[in-house]
Design a protein around this nucleic acid. Structure first.
Lengths: 90, 90
DNA sequence: CCTCCTTGCTACGATTTAAGTAGCAGAAAC
DNA sequence: GTTTCTGCTACTTAAATCGTAGCAAGGAGG
């Protein structure tokens, strides 16, 4: 499936997550992701912009689109479950 | 987050998906994933076994654990949403 | 015991992807 | 016109994945 293929790529979920509550510019996003290399970040951002998940707004930086936020909200039950999962592991 | 890190790795979601309704042995799983190389498959399976998502049952092959099935069920609303998303794109 | 399958899995060179660092080009501030 | 901030590209090195071959163990048949 195309979506699972996209979010199965490294950094995509992380980028989505880091933009969850405020826009970040390129360098802030890079720092938020723990120093991802700019070339890869730029590639992922291009893919995610093409997928209409993020957009670059002048004066604000990268922000989630409506669809990006929707995707993130689809993911939050997953993050809830993941805490239970993490507890079982540790 | 650890879960997002795990499922952000290539093939993890796919493997979960391919085991959705029947156990598969190593070679079947390899074929189902479209010919993933055995070394990577083995690595992913090791990670997923450590994460208690899959297990290898003798005489049956690789199967989802209870947690693996739970994770998959957390993911299915996502697959529903992804159809709408795909329609918007295409 | 020997051979033939099937099993999970390893080895290894080739290719692809990401990391890490430097720096460019454009716009704005001063 | 120099400094600063921006998104982003270029380049080399390192890591992940691919693709193919084949090993080791176990069962079936002879």
């Amino acid at each position: 499936m195309a979506l699972l293929d996209l979010i199965g790529r490294r950094w995509v979920l992380r980028i989505l997550w880091e933009l969850r509550d405020e826009p970040l510019n390129f360098r802030e996003l890079q720092a938020a992701c723990g120093g991802i290399s700019p070339s890869v970040l730029n590639t992922r951002l291009a893919e995610m912009r093409e997928a209409l998940l993020v957009e670059l707004k002048a004066e604000e930086g990268y922000t989630l689109t409506k669809m990006g936020r929707e995707l993130l909200s689809q993911l939050t039950p997953l993050t809830v479950w993941s805490e239970k999962w993490a507890k079982t592991l540790g």
